[in-house]
Amino acid sequence: MRALPWLALALAFAFIYLPVGTLVLFSFQDGRVPVPPFTGPTLDWYAAVLADDDLMEALLNSLVVAVGSSALACALGFLAAYGLARHALPASGLMRGLLIAPMTVSYLIVGLGLLIVLNRLGVGVSLWTAGLGHAVINLPLCFAIVFASMGAQQHNAERAARDLGADEVRVIVLVTVPMLAPALLAAFFLSMTLSWDEFIIAFLLTRFDVTLPVEIWSLLRSGLSPKTNAVGSLVFLVSVAVVLAAELIVFGRRRR
């Protein structure tokens, strides 16, 4: 009986790691077809990925879009959270609802709406429009995370700073932001992960310069090969490295 939970845990991990394990294993496949039997190992497919300019360009594009849209979403989300938490505003419930609303709508619908408007306005789609779309879907998350962590503790510190003569801008920059840094970082990091991996909005709102998921999608549609495994494995390993680094940074900060 005591072993049961551990058995369940092992099964759950087996399920969770089955696709990832298969993906990574067959990225070393020596041949074109990434299914058993396993032949190899070879690093050819990794070489092919690193030599693929389109993929590398898409990777950089993804990074730029993720950082840019997350920074914007965090800035807007933070300001709104500050305004709603520190100032008594009429209809604040309604405004909170409006800011959260995009979270309850499918990405496909957000993307389609923007695409229709851009078409009507004659604005061509590009990485900018994809970043715009990502900022729309990430703003609710950033707002919610920052708003939730605005507690009485910061409020007291802000009040103290104001009593000592600091104006509102200085209070925000010198007191609120540093105190909320963990929440802001968490919001920024989460937004970045979502934007980094988002497909449908990026697919609808880009043309020639595309983000990595869109490029992988066209790779998938252009031929079955372990190259897709290799690029997937690379993205995974890089992301895990970043996650672990972030985890250590946040963990370290909590310990202190």
Partner: peptide, 15 residues
């Protein structure tokens, strides 16, 4: 983590 990502990835890519 941004500097990390930038440092590790973006530099060789930019080049």
């Amino acid at each position: 983590m941004t500097p990390l990502r930038n440092g590790l990835l973006a530099a060789p890519l930019l080049a």
